[in-house]
Amino acid sequence: MNRLTYPFCATLLGLCLWQALVWVTDAPHFILPAPWRVAKAAFESRALIAEHAVVTGTEVILGLIIGASLGAITAIQLAAFPRLARLTLPLLVFTQAVPVFALAPILTLWFGYGIGSKIVMAVLIIYFPVTSAFYDGLSRVTPALLDLAKTMGASKTQMMLRIKIPSALPSLASGLKLAAVYAPIGAVIGEWVGASRGLGYLMLLANGRAKIDLMFATLIVLALLTLLFHKVVSMLANRLTDTSVTS
């Protein structure tokens, strides 16, 4: 059995269940299209889907880069200045109580219909998970390591750079993996609220024109895109935390 056997079988099982659902419910194809219709729509509209996928992909990548950077910088500042952390952490948690989805219309108003508002949306949605995961890691460095560093006369900056940050990289990596899955949600919500390009826009458009097969095809591409991001970010994150035996 090779390592692709299980994912392949799982996909096949999913398709069978989907087809079975179509048969059992006898739903018309504009309500629930069969897998083969969706495949056909995907193939026929491949250029259209690809064009919109590039837009959404760009939004997600830029959102990930900006959101992860801001989150990482915030976490380091919070860890370096405990008073700042005590002051701002409750505020940060409070901002998370505001549903980010509800902000989408305001963001569109402020940042326009272009990709700007979608990037901001993605940034907002991943900023907290990244900050929180990394800050957690930075606060949980083995105390004995810090004691040892103190006895060696370590400066605060060096202690942060050489001990705290490397120790916390696995936590940052889990934050980033979550971010890779969340970021497309942000971008697509942004596109739903107001856009002229992107997979979210294409889904609404297809839905409005009762091209449910195209909508499903777009949805699947979006899911595949998200899986791809997760895979790439996981690979990068694993390289970040590589403690393999030689260097």
């Binding site: 390591l145 006369g153 060096q158 050489r162 260097s247």
Partner: peptide, 18 residues
Amino acid sequence: LPWLNLHENVVIGSRLRG
């Protein structure tokens, strides 16, 4: 430090003092 090799671990004191 698990992310440093033996050599880098031995000189960590100097590194920490910059």
